[in-house]
Design a protein around this nucleic acid. Structure first.
Length: 426
RNA sequence: GGAGGGGUGGCAGAGCGGUCGAAUGCAGCCGUCUUGAAAACGGCCGGGCGAUGAGCCCCGGGGGUUCGAAUCCCCCCCCCUCCGCCA
């Protein structure tokens, strides 16, 4: 969400953002509505001022019956008039608010301009792609051979895009999550395990609603929904709070199960566990002071943190600077970390690192008092630490060996009781 | 799920339906005094819209009664205590 005043004063900048983000937001229509609201608001406030005056005088009138009655009569008139106008004002204001939620954030000038992920710009590569002198297997085949997954029975209980992780895969996933949580916590981030179900305001807050509502599972008969990322819950944690600059930055590494409908992806990534309805994720989250430099510093830090994890897992990857058309409404800038998937011969997204300036903070009303005592909206950022089972894909494929086993990277072994390879059970 | 109690400014805690955006205490800020600090004293001290003005709005959220609601009524949410259920 952008500041109303900013939109009024810089409509051209907003229009440019709309174009860059490929949004359909109509700035002129919005401003016209805004003028209507202002006009009506002025009328209503004038009436209320009169009403307040009269009420006050009624209170002061004491035993003067005649005066009282004439004032009460006037008050009644004003009340009647207000009863007409107030609902109108309320409706218009609500309409404006709903539109306000759709205004895109202004992307940073450093973000590549583009319309789809084709236009994302690689900024660096790490690791050497493995050369296989044997027929390489894709992750799903590997998992089947090693008896790590049961898709048929998963479908039986939960339908498509479900999975049962089995045997060493179950242990591996726990190990990965634990590993990621530990490593990021060691950097001073506070570990959190947050609710996977959250109220609507949390989703409005992080920007999931209203636009991505169709991707979210609603719980029947309740005002709660299943989160698609811990980001939603963590954003909601600080709703309506005014923090002190002294407690900033707040850095968290949060875990929770994540749920996504994946509506509109039928037929896409159907093999294996790449795109599933439920997964587990450890997420990095930062709340910092409202400074662009500070945001950018943390953005770089978060992506480096993720890179360290992937490096420790010995998976080749690249980082791409996500283009304006692919980054989503709320973001100022975004990196994706993409891991090398040998069976597909391409890099696939496993991590997503974004900064929002105060776009999210405005939506949930998270503020802080700066050194001068001024109240400002905070800046928020987030990045994946580890999302599983997706990370299993590059992990298993890159480390597969000629005999069909999979080497476990050293960094993970302490979490697996020292185990060095995944092998088919005899 | 059942019974009871409660949600007011950073915290604590008042608040007969009118002069309450709200007493008081603590914390915080500024000043006086002091070599300095503490104490004492004086002042300031919630947030939003708006131009640092006028005015308007906010006492968990939403409705209602009333000329007028923090105060009365209804619904919901959350917290606490007890009971039930339960990993």
């Amino acid at each position: 969400m952008l500041d109303l005043g900013f939109i009024r004063n810089h409509p051209e900048l907003v229009k440019e953002a709309v174009r860059l983000k490929q949004s359909d937001f109509d700035v002129d229509q919005f401003l016209a509505l805004d003028r209507q609201v202002l006009e009506l608001q002025h009328q209503v406030e004038t009436l209320r001022a009169e009403q307040n005056q009269i009420s006050k005088r009624i209170g002061q009138a004491g035993k003067d019956k005649e005066l009282r009655e004439s004032l009460i009569a006037q008050g009644k008139q004003l009340a009647a008039r207000l009863k007409e106008l107030e609902p109108q004002l309320e409706a218009l204001t609500e309409q404006r608010q709903q539109l306000l939620y759709l205004v895109p954030q202004i992307p940073d000038p450093s973000a590549p301009v583009g319309t789809s992920e084709e236009d994302n710009v690689p900024v660096r590569y790490w690791g050497e792609k493995p050369q296989f002198d044997f027929p390489l297997l894709d992750h799903y085949t590997l998992m089947q051979k090693l008896d790590l997954v049961d898709m048929e029975r998963a479908a039986k209980i939960a339908g498509s895009r479900s999975y049962v992780l089995k045997g060493d895969a179950a242990r591996l996933e726990m190990a990965l999550l634990h590993f990621a949580l530990d490593r990021i916590a060691a950097k001073g981030f506070t570990p959190l395990i947050v609710p996977a179900m959250a109220r609507e305001f949390c989703f409005i807050g992080n920007g999931q609603f209203p636009r991505g509502r169709d991707q979210v599972y609603a719980l029947e008969g309740e005002d709660t929904f299943l989160v698609g990322t811990a980001e939603v819950s963590i954003t909601g944690m600080f709703k309506d709070e005014i923090l002190s600059y002294e407690e900033l930055p707040l850095t968290f590494v949060g875990f929770c199960p994540c749920f996504r409908k994946e509506a509109g992806t039928y037929g896409k990534d159907t093999r294996g566990v790449f795109r599933v309805h439920q997964f587990n994720k450890v997420e990095q989250y930062v709340i910092c002071e409202a400074s662009h430099e500070e945001s950018v510093r943390w953005h770089e830090q978060l992506i480096r943190n993720a890179e360290e994890l992937v490096q420790a897992l010995e998976i080749p990857y690249r980082v791409v600077n996500v283009c304006t058309g692919d980054m989503g409404d709320g973001k100022v800038g975004m990196y994706d970390l993409e891991c090398w998937v040998p069976s597909e011969g391409r890099y696939r997204e496993t991590h997503s690192c974004s900064y929002f300036h105060d776009w999210q903070a405005r939506r949930v009303n998270i503020r802080y008092r700066d050194r001068d005592g001024k109240v400002k909206f905070v800046h928020t950022l987030n990045n994946t630490a580890i999302a599983s089972p997706r990370i299993l894909i590059p992990l298993l494929e890159n480390h597969q060996q000629p005999d069909g086993s999979v080497r476990i990277p050293e960094a993970l072994r302490p979490y697996l009781g020292g185990q060095e390879v995944l092998q088919a059970r005899r």
